[in-house]
């Protein structure tokens, strides 16, 4: 089946735990589904709900947020802030018709390369079962004048 559905996942990983966990999965040569694309942020607390909504609006089938385990955040408690926002996002996503499986928050430490593999594989499997996202293409983000920021 050349045209089997391959879900697109945007993953926001914190620099100190989950991103390193993903690096460790690599160093350990663990193999997992190639569907996730990682955006590195310093802390899961940096993940603005807009990043998530925008990713969905631009065609992501799933969004994964990865942070340090509770108590382990490099900045003390950014992951709790992420959790708080995640709960809100879940409700919002639901109202927008985005199935709950499409949005995921996971605590993965720098030592848990195998968890990176399990979580991504599991998410891909669930998204494949769900199929492509159909509903609610969101509004365009107001783009700042390019010249202004360069």
């Amino acid at each position: 089946m050349p045209d089997a559905f391959e879900p697109k996942i945007v993953a926001f990983f914190c620099n100190w735990c989950t991103y390193l966990g993903a690096d460790l999965a690599g160093a350990s040569r663990l193999k997992y589904a190639p569907n996730a694309r990682v955006v590195r942020v310093m802390c899961s607390g940096r993940v603005d709900p807009q990043f998530v909504l925008n990713a969905f609006a631009r065609g992501a089938d799933g969004v994964l947020i990865g942070g340090c385990h509770p108590g382990d955040c490099h900045y003390q408690e950014g992951n709790y802030k992420a959790l708080r926002r995640f709960r809100l996002l879940q409700r919002l996503a639901e109202q927008m018709g985005i199935e709950p499986e499409r949005l995921r928050l996971e605590w993965i430490s720098a030592a848990e390369g195998d968890r990176v593999r399990t979580v991504i594989n599991d998410m891909v499997e669930k998204l494949k079962a769900l199929g492509p996202r159909r509903v609610g293409q969101g509004p365009d983000r107001p783009v700042k004048d390019l010249a202004e920021v360069s």
Partner: peptide, 17 residues
């Protein structure tokens, strides 16, 4: 946030998609 501006992250994730 320097190095992690909203615009930079939006561009990156949109670029991915």
């Amino acid at each position: 946030q320097n190095l992690f501006e909203d615009d930079e992250i939006f561009e990156e994730s949109e670029g991915l998609l």
